[in-house]
């Protein structure tokens, strides 16, 4: 992909983010932060490439370290979001 295509995706995604986030109910702003934290750990993709390709041993171990960090976030972020969301209940339930 050329730079302009990537930039287009990025700019449009910013607009999607803008409208989607404004529609999030304020009561769920804490879970929002927890889940955005989990999904921003998609950076694990980069860590996986570094550790899988292993053309440089330092890059491999850096990559594996990155995989550990991002995994803490992914599992921790989704789990804590799930735990919070399970507590939100309607009246009379």
């Amino acid at each position: 992909m050329d730079f302009i295509s990537i930039l287009s995706i990025f700019v449009l995604a910013c607009f999607v983010g803008y409208y989607v986030v404004w529609s999030v109910t304020p009561a769920l702003h804490t879970p929002l932060m927890a889940v955005t934290n989990a999904i921003s750990s998609v950076i694990i993709v980069g860590a996986l490439i570094a550790s899988a390709e292993a053309a440089s041993p330092i890059a491999k171990y850096l990559g594996l370290f990155g995989v550990v960090l991002a995994s803490i976030n992914i599992f921790g972020g989704f789990a804590v979001t799930e735990r919070m969301l399970a507590m939100y209940k309607k009246k009379g339930k």
């Binding site: 999607v16 983010g17 932060m33």
Partner: peptide, 14 residues
């Protein structure tokens, strides 16, 4: 990587 770009934009705007 589109997944990372979309996520980054979402989290950044959030």
């Amino acid at each position: 990587n589109t997944a990372m770009i979309i996520t980054g934009a979402l989290v950044g705007s959030s």
